[in-house]
Design a protein around this nucleic acid. Structure first.
Lengths: 190, 190
DNA sequence: TTGTCTGGCGAACGTTCGTTCGCTATACTT
DNA sequence: AAGTATAGCGAACGAACGTTCGCCAGACAA
């Protein structure tokens, strides 16, 4: 059993238990029969940067739950080379969400934003805000209903523009209030 | 200081330290001066479902680092009601990535998949696989180059179809191998 | 006013923690 | 063959852990 294999088992424990295992638990996980073996294993993993220890000796993951490799570019137009070297790793949650308390997800219905790459069934990450810059995609309440559109300006007045030629821009007549700004889009294929 | 405020402090600790605080650390965080106060606080939070304890009394978060609220539907076509009631919360990482070790991200270049809602700059989540079902979006090596397209079949032979009328389908002549299946798409507006 | 309930306090308890020690077996070098 | 380094073992250690206890002050109801 290699150290790396054991490290994977430890991280699997972290993912399923939301905490790192104790040395006694690592004994169960790895099959080692003494805490000193675990102590030395942890020492090796820690020396090589695969784990950390806090001030009290308890172990911590170096990379966060949820990190994923970024491998490279894929040329969606003309085939190009995607090298098999990992460029970087990121945590999707941290990448997408800046302020967790003021952010929420909305599931998209309809196709009025399809030319912006937002289609039915997508999740959009909305961050609460009562104003936005021109050109941003906003969630807004207009004339009594909620909608998601590009925010545009004409003669100093805001209006909402869909990303689909089949729909017309919305010029608020009665009321208009921005509720949130769309910060990201997430789609999952099942 | 309300219990909920203290719970937020505890979860903030978890987010920044990748582990839950000990009772002594909760004393520092909250300003409480006895471990029994913490013990009772934890008891209340646990009773109300805001925390869990494991077998040994150590506390765990009920909701994972990175969970975010799903608020409702947004009708992208015609404005409809998006109620302000939180329907559910999910962790984006877990939502998007099934098998972390065989998954990676690729940044999209080009516009050949724009009608599928995948545009330049998007990150796609690719899961390594050497075969796929018809209709899935795949990363494939064809005639010496890499590309991302819909997998289609004609007369038992696979070919690749873009989601953009400006591009032509690719019929492999020399070599063809599926490298990965696209499981999700992530876009961030900056 | 009196009784009851709750949250917080300081002190003490037994358990589990990470760590260290002496030892053995194996692998590799000289 | 002899010497060195490494991984693993069982046992023991002090420190930190969650828990429990008796007590007190404030809030609220009877």
């Amino acid at each position: 059993m290699t150290d790396i294999t054991n490290r994977r088992k430890i991280l699997d424990f972290y993912r399923s238990h939301y905490r790192m295992p104790s040395y006694a638990e690592i004994m169960d996980i790895t099959g080692l029969r003494s805490k000193d073996s675990v102590f030395k294993l942890v020492g090796r993993l820690s020396r090589d940067g695969y784990l950390r220890k806090d001030r009290r000796g308890r172990i911590l993951p170096t990379s966060v739950l949820g990190e994923i490799k970024i491998l490279g570019l894929v040329e969606a137009g003309i085939p190009s080379v995607a090298e098999e070297e990992s460029i970087d790793t990121i945590a999707l949650d941290e990448y997408l969400i800046k302020d967790r308390d003021s952010s929420y997800l909305l599931r998209v219905k309809g196709d009025s934003m399809k030319d912006a790459g937002i289609v039915e069934g997508d999740l959009v990450i909305a961050e609460r805000a009562d104003n936005a810059k021109e050109g941003e995609i906003v969630i807004a309440e207009v004339d009594g209903g909620w909608t998601m559109k590009y925010l545009r300006m004409k003669k100093g007045q805001p209006y909402l523009e869909p990303a689909n030629e089949a729909y017309e821009p919305i010029y608020p007549t009665d009321s208009f209030a921005i509720s949130a700004v769309v910060r990201g889009v997430v789609r999952k294929y099942t």
